[in-house]
């Protein structure tokens, strides 16, 4: 711990105040407000909110649309995470061999991180478009077979691929950094013992990546719950038949289009608990991060 300090004075208070004020007004207050709305119901003709206990939650949890939204969110989270992480892992492993041109490969894999989610959604809407995009080929062979705006499973596939495409770069950067922090002496010792590159990948690099792997697993799942709005909004708009109505999208739609603040707040609280649980898991794994240097 530090021995040399400045004495606490008005300066320290003035330095802390701005961030604390912003955090209070834009984080803690809205969260408390969400909690308040979740347990109350606004009277239709004004006159304040009345306490309704767990009624809002009961209503949300008995709504089949909510459960289908949860189901598709989970599918989306798992599928994008698996796709993006496995692709990132393979690419990082081979980029790490540092053959000729590896810097060019690295840049080419990293840049999608910078593309805004709605831009990804829009680009993929074109790619998957039945009339004009890549999939128009399928429709010239079997007309009407591919139509995002008609078949739910196709819409879900589309947002999963778009979401995974966007997340590859992030996992790739972390995998590559972890691979590059493996001490050279370790690799050389393995090579001296006769382990060829593929053997080293399987028996040396992969086990050493475990902590990074768990960290990325949780981050990717959390992100796919909170970060999917832009993609869904421009790619499918939640349709067809609410098939791609992810949890964040539903909160937005219920709150701002349906003006159902209490229902949206109850959903927000559930999502908050979910994100908190995931963050908690993440901290446990970060604590146990293996240090190999």
């Amino acid at each position: 711990m530090r021995r040399a300090y400045f004495k606490f004075s008005w300066i320290a208070a003035a330095l802390l105040a701005p961030q604390l004020l912003i955090v209070f007004v834009f984080f803690y207050w809205p969260s408390a407000q969400a909690l308040y709305w979740a347990f109350t119901l606004e009277q239709p003709w004004g006159g304040g909110n009345t306490w309704v206990g767990f009624d809002n939650f009961r209503q949300v949890l008995s709504d089949p649309y909510y459960w289908s939204s949860v189901r598709v969110s989970v599918i989306y989270a798992l599928a994008t995470t698996v796709l993006a992480m496995s692709m990132a892992l393979i690419l990082a492993m081979f980029v790490d061999r540092q053959l000729a041109g590896y810097k060019a490969y690295r840049v080419a894999i990293i840049w999608p991180y910078a593309v805004a989610a709605p831009a990804v959604g829009l680009a993929f809407q074109f790619v998957f478009n039945p009339g004009a995009g890549l999939f128009s080929y399928i429709n010239t062979i079997a007309p009407g077979w591919w139509d995002l705006s008609k078949y739910p499973w196709q819409a879900v596939t589309a947002i999963v691929i778009a979401g995974a495409w966007k997340q590859v770069a992030y996992s790739f950067i972390f995998f590559l950094a972890a691979l590059q922090s493996i001490p050279r002496s370790l690799t050389e010792a393995a090579a001296m013992d006769g382990a060829r590159p593929l053997r080293r990948m399987m028996d040396l690099q992969l086990p050493l990546l475990t902590p990074t792997f768990f960290f990325l697993l949780v981050i990717n799942i959390t992100d796919s719950f909170t970060d999917s709005f832009g993609i869904v909004d421009t790619l499918t708009g939640g349709g067809p038949f609410r098939a791609t109505d992810l949890m964040v999208y539903k909160i937005y739609a219920d709150g701002f289009r349906g003006f159902d603040y209490s229902g949206a707040a109850a959903q927000s609280i559930i999502l908050m608990l979910l994100v908190m649980a995931l963050t908690f898991v993440q901290f446990r794994y970060i604590e146990r991060r293996v240090h190999y240097t």
Binding site: F27, A34, D227
Partner: peptide
């Protein structure tokens, strides 16, 4: 994203 309505 999760506290969007009350933040608004």
């Amino acid at each position: 994203e999760v506290r969007i309505v009350p933040t608004y």
